[in-house]
Amino acid sequence: MSFSRRLIHASLLAALALGGGAFAQDKTPLKIVVGFPPGGSADTLARLLGEHLRDQYAPIVVENKPGAGGRIALNLVKRAEPDGHTVIVLPSGPMVLFPHVYKKLDYDAVKDFSPVSLIANFQFGVVAGPASKAKTVGEMVQAAKAQPGVASYGTPGLGTLPHFMGVLFEQQVGAKLNHVPFQGGGPANTALLGGHIDYKFDVVSETAELHRTNKVRILAVTGAQRDPQVPEVPTLKESGIDMVATAWFAMYGPANMNPAARDRLSKAVAAAVKTPALRERLLGLGYDAVGSTPAELAAAQAADLKRWEAPIKATGIQLD
């Protein structure tokens, strides 16, 4: 190699050495962890969001770590390096319900995580499968009162938001159902379609298409307004049941997350969900796009922690 070529080669190596930190960081994957199986609502949302973040964070990896209602995934993120490369997308339940539900929770929902951004608000559906003859919530309640504890309902897991939606529903209507927990919304759908359970409480997007094709029947939705995915379905309030309950999806990182990385990601998520394309896509799935600062997510979490405390204690449910 000539002297001039050696000089150019050395200069290139020096430039890479000086700029290598930023270059390597740009190429480090952004891992979005999901605590539920592929195909469920959290997984779908994480993948949609990832597609809209690729211009800034390529490559992006969505990693499913299902089990324990999302706690396995939360503990993975809890132990991750707080450098901004590992985050979790999850529904609000593990962050606002589990602290009141579990006697010994293996994480602190406030101290062990860094809020990044709210993503979207959503509501739930009360869904009847082929095993049920109920065409309305009124018929469902009437049958449940006639045979307490016989009719079953499935959820994505013990102590999850849909589980407590079912518990609150039972309290409100004065009927007893048999709760059957699954490892995610997908397996619960399979059981519902197979006639192994009668009903399902879950995010509307999990069964909207099945409802439209007459494979299941969404009897009511839990929000204050009807869901745009199934506008013909009444709310519980419209069905004569005084119950309104919604939840949210959000992104968190490990505690003490690098502030610059956290703020950059928070702004990117908020900007992504507010783009017309993603906002419309989320609306079609029954999600009301939000986007927020870390402080706004922290405030929403604190408010819901307080909101759910009394209702959960009233149920007397305590899990190990």
Rank of each mutant, 00 (worst) to 15 (best):
W248A: 14
V61M: 13
A261T: 11
P82K: 03
A250P: 07
V203E: 06
A295V: 10
E232M: 11
L177M: 00
R264M: 06
M140N: 09
G186W: 03
Y107P: 05
D26A: 14
L18C: 14
L90M: 04
H179S: 01
P234Q: 13
A134L: 11
L16W: 13
V203K: 00
A42N: 06
F113E: 04
A261Q: 12
T213P: 08
E81A: 15
D43M: 07
G240R: 07
Q56W: 05
E238V: 13
G93I: 08
F182H: 01
G20A: 07
H9L: 15
S114T: 11
A120W: 06
G291L: 04
F3G: 11
V221Y: 10
A73N: 03
R54Q: 13
P276T: 14
E170V: 01
P259C: 12
M251C: 10
K65W: 08
S266N: 06
I241G: 05
D106H: 08
G284M: 03
P187S: 00
R217A: 14
G194I: 02
L48D: 14
A268K: 05
M243E: 12
D43L: 09
Q229V: 13
T28L: 10
T315F: 05
L319D: 07
A268E: 09
G316K: 02
A277P: 04
P91H: 10
G253V: 10
P156G: 02
P254R: 08
D242V: 15
T44Y: 09
H163N: 00
